[in-house]
């Protein structure tokens, strides 16, 4: 266990280091450390480091890499919640319509330039988050009206209905968007480019708060994987815990989608690999999925911006390219098993 844990943390450190060092301009590790020390604690820079290198590292690479890591971690923790609460290894925020809701909210802001003076740059992520939250509230509200016991299959089916409906609205808006179509298209595919430290700090705060809430309920998550009746007969206050966890998962995904666009599959892949390596106990699955998902996203982002340089691929396309075969593998492996 300790060896695997060390290896995972090492993977994350290596991924972040590579993400910061590689790109159109290569930055050696020693220079990276000198610039970070200079920015954090003052002092003189070695003479061979040019101001452009400082600018590239501090305003472009570091925020981008940390945002990729934070987004990957937030999506993965959300994936853990959705899979365990709904007892479905293929469940995700996308199944419940959260991503679609966030996408619609952000789409409206982009198309109609709804930036408010008070909120400024926060308008887009906030509206996106509220869109995601509204969708999950509608999904849960409708599911509870249809089925007092809120069975998982009811939630998933209602979520899929809302997801399809909201996606249709986004598609119609996009089709009518004219010159904004390309911007909207790239945003929907996901990107960490041109984001500043304030974006990283905001998403990190959401991740910290959401992650702690999910971790608080790690034992309940363990019991819920055996089914609702089993969890309730062991004393879990299912109605309350389910709401808290699903809304927290929605907040994690909604915020990420709003800041960085729709990035799929990481929330599916990371929890599966972590469960395979470290066992199913959520005491470990929640934090380690965050670390693994963050590292995975940094590597995908690195691939997105370096493989076809100087052209950049949307990171959502890279995660989907790697994640779709993985999804198929899980699905068909389960079918073979059953």
């Amino acid at each position: 266990m300790a060896n695997k844990l060390t290896l995972l943390v090492l993977l994350a450190v290596v991924a972040i280091t590579l993400g910061v060092a590689l790109g159109s301009v290569y930055l050696p590790l020693q220079d990276i450390l000198s610039i970070v020390a200079h920015k954090l604690w003052g002092g003189n820079l070695p003479p061979h480091i040019r101001p452009t290198a400082v600018s590239i590292l501090w305003t472009l690479r570091l925020p981008r890499t940390f945002l990729a890591f934070t987004a990957g971690a937030a999506l993965s923790v959300s994936g853990v919640v959705m899979q365990s609460v709904l007892r479905n290894p293929l469940a995700s925020s996308y199944t419940l319509g959260v991503s679609s809701g966030a996408s619609l909210g952000a789409c409206i802001v982009i198309l109609y330039g709804m930036t408010r003076p008070l909120l400024g740059n926060l308008t887009l992520p906030l509206v996106g988050f509220l869109g995601g939250l509204a969708t999950i509230l509608l999904t849960m509200g409708m599911a509870s009206r249809l089925d007092r016991q809120m069975e998982n299959h009811t939630i998933i089916l209602v979520g899929m209905v809302f997801s399809l409906f909201v996606n249709a609205m986004t598609t119609m808006l996009s089709a009518l968007s004219g010159e904004q179509l390309q911007r909207l298209y790239y945003w929907q595919m996901g990107s960490f480019a041109m984001k500043d430290w304030s974006t990283v700090a905001t998403l990190a705060a959401v991740l910290l708060l959401g992650g702690l809430i999910v971790l608080r309920y790690h034992r309940e998550l363990d019991m819920m994987t055996f089914g609702e009746e089993q969890a309730r007969s062991m004393g879990v206050d299912l109605q309350k815990v389910k709401w808290i966890l699903l809304i927290t998962g929605a907040a994690l995904t909604g915020s990420t989608v709003a800041f960085c666009g729709v990035i799929g599959f990481v929330d599916l892949v990371a929890p599966h690999i972590v469960r395979r390596l470290f066992g199913a106990s959520h005491r470990w699955v929640v934090p380690l999925s965050g670390i693994f998902g963050g590292a995975f996203m940094v590597i995908c982002d690195l691939a997105a911006r370096t493989l076809t340089s100087p052209h950049e691929l949307p990171v959502g396309a890279v995660t989907a390219f790697l994640g779709a075969p993985f999804f198929a593998w899980i699905y068909f492996r389960r079918r073979t098993f059953s």
């Binding site: 007892r87 290894p89 055996f226 089914g227 089993q230 062991m234």
Partner: peptide, 30 residues
């Protein structure tokens, strides 16, 4: 509340589907 009920009454249901695999000891510890 559910915890108070579970302190008094426990139910051995029919075996549920296993989606995520815990160790025997972890399962009983629940």
């Amino acid at each position: 509340k559910p915890k108070a009920v579970a302190k008094e009454i426990a139910m051995l249901s029919q075996i549920p589907s296993i989606y995520f695999s815990y160790s025997v000891e972890e399962t009983v510890m629940m």
